[in-house]
Simulated assay, not measured.
Amino acid sequence: MAALGHTFPFYAGPKPIFPMDTTLAIIITIFLMALVTFIIILPGIRGKMRLFWLLRVVTSLFIGAVILAVNFSSEWSVGQVSTNTSYKAFSSEWISADVGLQVGLGGLNITLKGTPVQQLNETINYNEEFTWRLGENYAKEYAKALEKGLPDPVLYLAEKFTPSSPCGLHRRYRLAGHYTSAILWVAFLCWLLTNVMLSMPVLVYGSHMLLATGCFQLLALFFFSMATSFTSPCLLRLGTATLHTHCGPAFWITLATGLLCVLLGLAMAVAHRMQPNRLKAFFNQNAREDIVLQWTPEKGGLLSPRYRPMAESLKTEDIPLSEASSEVCCQGEHPKEPECRL
Rank of each mutant, 00 (worst) to 15 (best):
K280A: 11
K336E: 08
E312P: 01
E327F: 06
L314I: 12
W295K: 03
E333N: 15
V328A: 09
W295R: 01
R288D: 14
V292H: 15
G300K: 01
E327G: 07
P276D: 06
R306N: 08
F282N: 02
E339V: 14
L321H: 01
E317T: 09
E298K: 05
A281C: 04
K315T: 12
F283P: 04
A324H: 02
N277R: 07
R306G: 04
G300R: 00
Q331H: 14
A311E: 10
H334P: 10
R308N: 03
E312L: 04
Y307R: 09
D290R: 15
Q331F: 11
L293P: 03
L303H: 02
S322Q: 03
R288Q: 14
T316A: 13
L293E: 11
C329N: 09
A311W: 14
E317K: 11
F282C: 05
E333G: 09
S304M: 15
C329F: 11
L314D: 15
S304A: 15
G301I: 00
E312I: 00
G301S: 00
S322L: 02
T296W: 01
P320C: 00
P309Y: 05
P309Q: 04
L321V: 02
S326L: 08
V292N: 13
E289W: 06
L279A: 02
E339C: 11
K336C: 02
P309K: 03
V292S: 10
